Amino acid sequence: MIVVTAPTGDIGHQVVQNLLRSGAPIRVIARDPSKLAHEVRKSAEVVEGSHGDADVVNEAFKGADAVFWLTPADPKAASVMAAYVDFTRPAATALKEQRVKRVVAVTALGRGSPLADKAGYVTGSLAMDDLIVGTGVAFRGLANPSFMDNIARQAAAIRDQGKFFLPISGDLKLPSVATRDIAAIAARLLLDENWTGQSEVPVLGPEDISFNDMADIISDVLGRPVSYQQISFDAYKARFVQFGMSDAMAQGMTDMAWAKDQGIDLTVSRTSENSTPTSFRQWCADTLKPAVLG
């Protein structure tokens, strides 16, 4: 039995689809099961509730061989550590009590960097990993840079203003990964019963690419001019506060962006093993273009 958390999210729903195609027995934890696709409700066991709740994870982890763990960053949390570490504590206890064998988690690049203790959500993710690792469970942390899919959140600005905005230098070449590739690796590891031990698995996308490079590719794919505009970190944080985030979580997003601008995502050398197939151009054609043009 494989348990999937956050099964309606960007990555989780793709993990579920990959696992359903394999025919493996799966169980999902969902706050609102009505948001699950019909085929998921029909084919998977569904445990209703939050995977931050002790009773919920204890029920969901019974008889589980593997767990896909993804912590949704609570925009209203009192602190980044509350959102990541405190949220995960009930699950860490349940992993031990239910004797789960393997965990595959979504986490961030940056372990070992001098920036790791002041990188907002990255800091929280790495502390969350440490908590899970401390249970003794076999563990693979999929260590990711920024997601290409995050650019789609600015589809309206790209359509209406011909721009997208971040506080990171436009010329800095950084790794970027499509969530479909993360989900594919997660599913492969969840289905593989042979691995043991605890380690990170960097997932770097196919190339390092700057936001100015992205703007050129978006322009080419959409057939209209699009530019990247770097904004201040203060303005970046203010946008999240305006959208209803707590000050602590908005600061966590800002601190993560600052660390990325300082190169925290460049701490792992690229190899053929940690490079994934989906190029930014392909992602734009498949995902961004329909989001922008409808």
Rank of each mutant, 00 (worst) to 15 (best):
R140A: 15
A77K: 00
V80P: 00
R153F: 15
A30E: 11
R21D: 12
V3S: 10
V28K: 00
A92Q: 02
S43D: 13
W195A: 08
D74N: 14
A64P: 10
A44E: 10
A94G: 10
T287Q: 10
E207K: 02
S113Y: 12
R140Y: 09
I209V: 08
P145E: 10
M1K: 03
A66T: 07
H13L: 12
F68K: 00
I29Q: 09
N150M: 14
A94R: 00
V46Y: 02
S227L: 15
A238G: 06
P33K: 01
D74P: 05
S50E: 13
S275L: 03
G112D: 14
V57R: 02
V201F: 08
E39P: 06
Q198V: 03
F280D: 14
G23S: 12
V3L: 13
G52A: 13
F68Y: 15
V28E: 05
V40L: 06
P7K: 00
G124L: 07
V56T: 15
H38C: 03
S227N: 10
S272Q: 11
A105G: 06
T196S: 14
A78Q: 05
I29K: 05
V122A: 09
V221L: 11
G252N: 03
G120R: 01
W283I: 12
V46K: 02
D192R: 01
T196Y: 02
M256I: 04
G110L: 15
D171A: 15
S210K: 01
E193K: 04
P72D: 10
A94H: 02
S269Y: 05
I151F: 10
N274K: 01
S219H: 10
A119K: 00
T196D: 14
D192Y: 05
A119S: 14
D86W: 01
T71P: 07
S22T: 07
A156P: 00
N150H: 05
Y228K: 01
P277T: 01
L20P: 03
A259C: 14
A285W: 00
S43Q: 14
P90R: 00
G112W: 09
L36F: 04
V106T: 14
L70R: 00
A66M: 05
A78D: 12
T196W: 03
P225E: 15
D247C: 03
A60M: 06
V67D: 08
L142C: 14
V137M: 08
L126R: 02
I151Q: 04
F68A: 06
K96Q: 12
D220Q: 07
A235Q: 05
A285E: 15
S272T: 06
A60C: 06
A257E: 06
R153V: 15
G120S: 11
P290H: 02
F61M: 12
K101M: 06
G170E: 10
L126K: 02
I231S: 05
M1C: 06
T135H: 04
M214L: 11
V268Y: 12
F68Q: 04
D208G: 09
S227C: 08
Q262K: 09
R270Q: 12
A73N: 11
A119Y: 03
R281V: 07
K42C: 10
L131W: 01
G9N: 05
K96N: 13
F147I: 08
T135M: 12
N194T: 15
D181M: 08
D65V: 08
